[in-house]
Design a protein around this nucleic acid. Structure first.
Lengths: 221, 221
DNA sequence: GTCTATAACCGGATAGAC
DNA sequence: GTCTATCCGGTTATAGAC
């Protein structure tokens, strides 16, 4: 019963008002005052629940991940081949975010700022990030790989998926055709490269790559 | 003599005050009021010369490329080996942008927004982008490569360099050690990969990669 | 201790007089 | 080309209600 305290309800009302207004008028076109009014609360009250306007966006993108995970689940249960699993998950992502293409620029805009709470590499998104990485761990589930790569690959694939999203943001081709070409082409390549790198002859190359990854990793704080 | 009209001088004064304050206090920490005061003009007058605070940043962006090209030139004249050429140019970039680390996030923030004129993939930066790509063309100058890759490589390297900068933005390790590890490790890898891909046996892989690149390329408008 | 409201602050941006 | 006055919206301080 702790789930629908009055506070929870108010919080939800504010968030939903905000998301609706964002969709209607875009992010910049939506004022915190309008959000508060539309939710039937005072401005100060809105700030009691959401520390900033950006945090409202963060909730918005949190939703996206949940939707993505929900759509990706069935795909992963059905497909066994790595390339299809990866491609399916990426296509699902594109489908989920498509309605928000218009103002997703805002995501990257803030995400690229190291100081923003939305920054996917920052502390505040640690949870969202690890959920995202988990999804790519699931993609690799049941795939045979040399153990040294296997440990690193989920995070690498997640990073790769972020690159795809960045490309998508800038893609205004009809039906997002260019991004789809990128997904189709790059998943094929990624899988081929993984296969090639799995070759024992290339173990030295793999090793130096993995050493680099260790060196650039953020020390756990 | 058209060069130093009163207007030009005022404009320069405002810009220099701004860049100095940005370096000292960061972008967000610098108010337009402070910029105006430090330049000895009124707030409104500052806006007469620069349409927004962001436009002040744009000026910085242009400076950086010029500095980078100037520093990179001598390096390329001296080094003959691809890995050293690439590493040298990337290190030069890091050296040039280091003083601005504190507020470069902001730059990227706007630059990553597809609607921003600063966005490096957009139309308005076409010239800046092609200059950047030219620099990596120069890096490859004199390097023997299969012609199919040779055509694509400058743009790929440029994109790769943007990735390095993105990483640097988020790097708060002492002396930017992690980014330097990334540069050292990744240039080595990049060169190895280019070598491997140059192997005639891998021509099919190369071919599908190049086909993908063609498919995702923005149609010339 | 959890929640809500009002008033004010601050800084980016604009209008319009000189 | 320069100024002053003002707007606007994100954010904060703070007082009090439940």
């Amino acid at each position: 019963m702790a789930k629908t305290t009055k506070g929870e309800q108010t919080r939800t009302r504010i968030l939903e008002s905000a998301l609706e207004l964002f969709r209607e008028r875009g992010y910049e076109g939506t004022t915190m005052r309008a959000v508060a009014e539309s939710a039937g609360v005072s401005l100060g009250n809105a700030y009691y629940y959401f520390a900033s306007k950006e945090h409202l966006l963060q909730a918005y993108y949190g939703n996206i991940h949940e939707q993505h995970a929900a759509v990706a689940g069935p795909i992963l249960e059905q497909e066994k081949e790595l390339e299809k699993r990866l491609k399916g998950v990426l296509r699902a992502k594109l489908a989920v975010i498509e309605p928000y293409h218009r103002f997703s620029g805002l995501l990257f805009r803030t995400a690229a700022d190291p100081k923003s709470p939305l920054n996917p590499f920052g502390e505040e998104s640690a949870e969202a990030r690890s959920k995202g990485i988990d999804l790519y761990r699931a993609v690799l589930d049941g795939v045979k790989l040399p153990p040294d790569i296997a440990a690193e690959l989920p995070e690498l694939l997640w990073t790769y998926s972020m690159g795809i999203v960045l490309f998508w943001l800038h893609d205004d081709s009809p039906g997002r055709a260019r991004t789809h070409a990128l997904v189709d082409g790059s998943t094929e390549l990624v899988v081929k490269i993984i296969r090639i790198l799995s070759n024992p002859l290339l173990r030295p190359l793999r090793k130096s790559a993995l050493e680099m990854l260790a060196a650039i990793r953020t020390p756990p704080s």
